[in-house]
């Protein structure tokens, strides 16, 4: 019964993330964070940061990666066996995909009418700048004492920021930052 309730809550959360997660990628992070860290406390902020890091170094969009990871860890941390965890992963990944499936099916059918629709264009003219604000909030939320433990954290932050603006491969940067952590701490 408790397990069923957990599955339903996970499903509802990730369905919501799929439905309101405009902008893809980092723009979906504050919404995911709001659901899984702030509201349901399935994972901590630093675990959430680790998932984003893992997501950067593995295939697939971050929304799927978080769905799969949290589906598993929320169920196993609640004391259920790993088999139930796999089912939790599948439920979350499925839930985050359903809104896309429904909306894209409709969009493909009405494509010509959607393309130059002034109502949609006008809604997007405010939504797009708002999405930039959502990405910025994702970064601000992650600047916590758990993620930035001392001055060395800020040095790593600055170095990676400069390197990333100069288009150095993000996967390489994560590996280098990991090596730096191993040496510095």
């Amino acid at each position: 019964m408790e397990l069923l309730h957990l599955y339903l809550t996970l499903f509802a959360s990730f369905f919501k993330i799929g439905l309101f997660g405009f902008g893809g990628g980092y723009a979906m992070l504050p919404l995911i964070q709001h659901e899984v860290v702030a509201t349901h406390q399935w994972i901590s902020v630093s675990d959430f940061t680790d998932i984003v890091a893992i997501s950067q170094t593995t295939p697939g969009p971050v929304a799927f990666n978080s769905a799969t990871y949290i589906g598993y860890s929320a169920v196993t941390e609640a004391g259920f066996s790993s088999g139930y965890g796999v089912l939790g992963s599948a439920i979350c990944t499925f839930a985050v995909s359903i809104p896309s499936l429904i909306l894209m099916t409709i969009a493909t059918a009405f494509f010509l009418r959607l393309k130059n629709n002034p109502w949609i264009q006008s809604a997007l003219s405010v939504l797009k700048p708002a999405i930039i604000g959502l990405i910025a909030s994702a970064a601000l939320i992650l600047i916590t004492p758990y993620n930035f433990v001392d001055y060395k954290s800020y040095i790593i932050f600055g170095a990676v920021l400069v390197a990333s603006v100069r288009k150095i491969n993000p996967i390489l940067l994560i590996f280098l930052a990991g090596a730096a952590g191993l040496i510095l701490y």
């Binding site: 797009k128 999405i131 990405i135 930035f148 932050f157 990676v160 994560i174 930052a177 990991g178």
Partner: peptide, 26 residues
Amino acid sequence: RIFKGIRPAVVALIVAPLSSLGKSAG
């Protein structure tokens, strides 16, 4: 220890594309 190094890097990776994304978002 490895993730202590990675966590601030993740935040930097989110901040880095903000200005160019902002420009293309109008």
